[in-house]
Simulated scan of single mutants.
Amino acid sequence: MQIIWSSIVVAFLVGLAICQENEDTFMCRKVGRDSHSYGTATGEQVEIKTGTTKPGEETRTRKDDVIDIMLERIRVLERRVSMLERERNMPSPRADPGNLFDTTGTPIPPEETTPTPMIPESSDHCQIYHRERCFTFVSKKLGAIGLKEAQTKCRALNGELANVYDEDHFGKIEDYLLQNTEDDGGKEFFIVGMTYNVKKNTVSLRGGVRAHFVKWYSDDYPNTRNRYNTRIHIQVNHSAGNGNDGMYNVSPSARAKSALCEIHPRHLLRTR
């Protein structure tokens, strides 16, 4: 809109300058001895009689006539701009979900849309999905994994050791392990990013925020006898006879079968 108005003002000023410099122009053509013809915005020629006037008065009259013509052109442009704005703001037939017909009365077929998934449907780095984040297990080919190795493997996936956020999240982790690990009657235990403060008797998420969900493995935990038992591991049993599923606190040097990594979806494309 600003560009259109700028063009109108420039055209107006140029028109005045042209008439001052040269009377025999497209806006100031002489018609006979005492009349002038001016082009309008619609392409019509308007003949304006000057009559018998003094030279100075005739010049002023001519300028006034040019101003009238330019104002008329501006009004025409304003009408065109208003019409274009109305067309632009007019909702399309598709804008209203209840509109089943186009402007000609022809039925509009339903649009086929496929929702864009927040994460890739098949991603090796999204074994568990919770709170718009992906969780995946990492391990060593042989032997148990330690804390430093687990952190390195998670960072290689653009992730960190995982938090467990709530009971629903914990249940998803249990289900995944029971469905995707060999049921040999044993148990799965793994490292996470959470820590335990022996003095305060509190569990914190990775980063230091206090955890709202804590599920201890048994009544023997948390183990407060050793102030170095600051890391949280989790155990999931294939058989109910092996005890409950839950958390336990151990030394940072303790090893486990695997570690759980947490990856934000925006990092997934970097890992594929």
Rank of each mutant, 00 (worst) to 15 (best):
S6Y: 08
S6A: 13
S7M: 13
I8P: 00
I8M: 12
L13F: 14
G15P: 03
C19G: 15
D24L: 11
D24G: 04
K30D: 04
V31K: 13
V31L: 11
G32P: 06
R33K: 15
G39K: 14
T42P: 02
E57N: 07
R60P: 02
R62V: 08
I67P: 01
I69M: 15
M70C: 08
L71R: 02
L71I: 07
L71F: 08
E72C: 05
R75E: 08
R75H: 07
L77M: 09
R79K: 12
M83P: 00
L84C: 08
E85C: 04
S92W: 12
F101V: 11
D102R: 05
I108P: 02
P109H: 08
P110A: 05
E112L: 15
T116S: 09
S123W: 04
D124R: 09
E132I: 06
R133D: 03
C134D: 02
F137D: 02
F137H: 04
F137R: 02
S139D: 00
K140F: 05
A150N: 00
Q151F: 04
N158T: 04
E160Q: 08
G171E: 11
K172P: 07
I173C: 05
D175S: 15
T181H: 07
E182F: 14
G186S: 15
K187A: 12
F189Q: 01
I191G: 05
I191M: 09
N197V: 06
N197A: 13
K199Q: 14
K199L: 06
N201G: 04
T202N: 07
V203I: 10
R206M: 11
R210V: 15
A211N: 06
F213C: 03
F213H: 10
Y217H: 10
R227P: 15
R227L: 04
N229A: 11
G241S: 13
M247F: 15
P252W: 05
A256G: 02
A256I: 01
K257F: 14
P265W: 03
R266K: 09
R266V: 15
R266F: 15
L268S: 00
L269P: 08
T271I: 12
T271W: 00
